[in-house]
Design a protein around this nucleic acid. Structure first.
Length: 330
DNA sequence: TTAACGTCAAAAT
DNA sequence: TTGACGTTAA
């Protein structure tokens, strides 16, 4: 998901590259979520039926070995809580999966393996146990992994911002919204993919980001619609861009819209602030201090009363239980 | 011109 | 299920 159509917007500064050429001798972090899913496709039937398989683990290890061969040291970052979304969305997904599983089994009974497989792939669930299997397999080969207290996105953004890693390998455009120096997407099995550098933004053709600060860019992203807040009707990346270019801050954008009599839901502003806070102050693990910290330091930036509220504000924006692996005390 | 909408293909073997 | 792309509607 992430920010809708942000990647196509940045096509002119997207560079075809190879992880080796891009990161050789450096450390990067990898969004484990995608590889976990792709690996599961290779053996969705076995996973659904509870049959023994290690294909998904092997898939992940192969990717990890590709990075190693390219002389890239990687930290594999896993999501903490059970993945995003409201409880009812999660329940709906569970229902969809079990329906798909029923259909898969029906096709399998009739001997139609390929039809069955179409439904098995829709029925696979990525469980914490699968993540643990992969983490253990990685460790056995000397690969490092890290489970984020909440979301991997924020965790990876922290690692880049503080110089722990040089870049992020992911499919998620949110990392660009976070202002990551280097984001590597669409990595194939051979290590080829596309790199986007934040400092190239000023050279983008089409939408111009000349004069944009990282905050302006982030606010544009939230305005255009993100995982935490859908956009207003008729607002996409283009509209959000022209509004921020003209008014510089979301505050002034919203004031302008009110002035123009554009219909804005009553709670939009407060939800916008929550979304921004979630982007900027999510909880992450600091490998140096060995404790949970905010992605950005709120001290001196936010009012103390707001800082005191962060645990509540950020915890409710993504409801997800933190499993025991993510507990700093464990 | 831009966003919304619908269709299509890829994911891994 | 998601992202990419072409078409349509405002």
């Amino acid at each position: 998901m992430g920010i809708a159509s942000l990647l196509p917007t940045l096509k002119s500064i997207s560079r075809h590259a190879h992880v080796g050429e891009t990161y050789a001798g450096q450390v990067v972090c990898v969004d484990a979520y995608v590889w976990l899913h792709r690996g599961a496709y290779a053996c969705s039937r076995e996973l659904c039926e509870g049959l023994p398989t290690r294909k998904h683990v092997e898939y992940f290890l192969n990717r990890a070995r590709t990075l190693k061969r390219a002389n890239v040291r990687a930290i594999y970052v896993f999501d903490g809580g059970r993945l995003p979304g409201k409880a009812n969305e999660e329940a709906q997904r569970r229902r969809n999966r079990s329906e798909a599983l029923a259909k898969a089994k029906a096709h399998a009974r009739q001997g139609n393996a390929s039809a069955a497989n179409d439904f098995y792939v829709r029925a696979v669930d990525i469980t914490p146990e699968m993540a643990r299997e992969v983490i253990e397999a990685l460790a056995r080969e000397g690969f490092e992994s890290l489970t984020a207290p909440y979301e991997a996105d924020a965790q990876m953004a922290y690692l880049v911002k503080n110089g722990f890693v040089a870049g992020v390998i992911t499919e998620d455009s949110d990392l660009i919204a976070h202002g990551c120096r280097s984001v590597f997407t669409k990595m194939a099995g051979d290590g080829s993919g596309i790199e986007i550098r934040f400092e190239e933004l000023g050279r983008n053709r089409g939408l111009s980001f000349v004069g944009f600060t990282p905050d302006m860019f982030l606010e544009m992203c939230v305005l255009s619609g993100c995982d935490y807040l859908p956009s207003l009707n008729g607002v996409g990346v283009k509209k959000a861009h022209s509004l921020i270019r003209r008014f510089k801050t979301y505050n002034k954008v919203l004031r302008h819209m009110k002035f123009e009599g554009i219909a804005v839901p009553k709670d939009y502003e407060s939800r916008f602030v929550d979304a921004l806070l979630t982007f900027k102050y999510s909880w992450v693990y600091c490998p140096q201090r060995r404790e949970i910290v905010n992605l950005n330091d709120p001290v001196g930036v936010l009012d103390q009363s707001l800082i005191d509220d962060l645990p509540r504000l950020i915890a409710h924006s993504r409801v997800g239980a933190i499993d025991e692996r993510a507990d700093p005390k464990a």
